[in-house]
Amino acid sequence: MDKQYKVVHCTINGKKVERIVDVRASLTDMLRNDFRLTSVKKGCEVGECGACTVIIDGEGFNSCIYLAVWAEGKEIWTLEGLIGPGGELSDIQQAFIDEGAIQCGFCTPGFIMTSWEIVNSGKEYTDDELRKALSGHLCRCTGYENIFRAVKKTMLRHLGKFEEAEKVNSQGITEYPEPMPFK
């Protein structure tokens, strides 16, 4: 039986595009091979590691198990789309650098895309909720504490809680001064 191809129209990082793809191709393959968006990493290819995470219509998806043809009419964002017109990094990317949340860097684009969704949600996540929201990503360098801290600080800054963000300690816990004892 012959291979089947389809035309896909979608918006990638704010730009309308169209491509002819093999119906069996994953979105990861389309983004990497056709658009050279190599921040989208091929990790496990079973949807467990989260290295291929992209944002589709505002929600994070594992692009390795998402068919390219399903992207028809969708708005897709990858890490490359977060960079400003002058090459400046977004605040979540800068936070990963500032907090040392990068070691080998392979999981980083996926983590940042999910983090971007979190910090732009306008919701204040508890520490537990934040850990659960990030649990679809695996970091084999085990840099989870630094990643957690980067996301928590950026989330608080997005919510206008700048002082609270500065109080997030190395364990990712927000430190408050001891209450004054009653006299």
């Binding site: 949807g47 467990e48 989260g50 995470t53 929600e59 994070g60 998806f61 594992n62 198990i65 998402y66 999910t114 659960k132 929201a133 649990s135 679809g136 990503h137």
Partner: peptide, 9 residues
């Protein structure tokens, strides 16, 4: 299913 990205799918 721990992964939120997988839960989205």
């Amino acid at each position: 299913m721990a992964s939120r990205t997988k839960r989205n799918m």
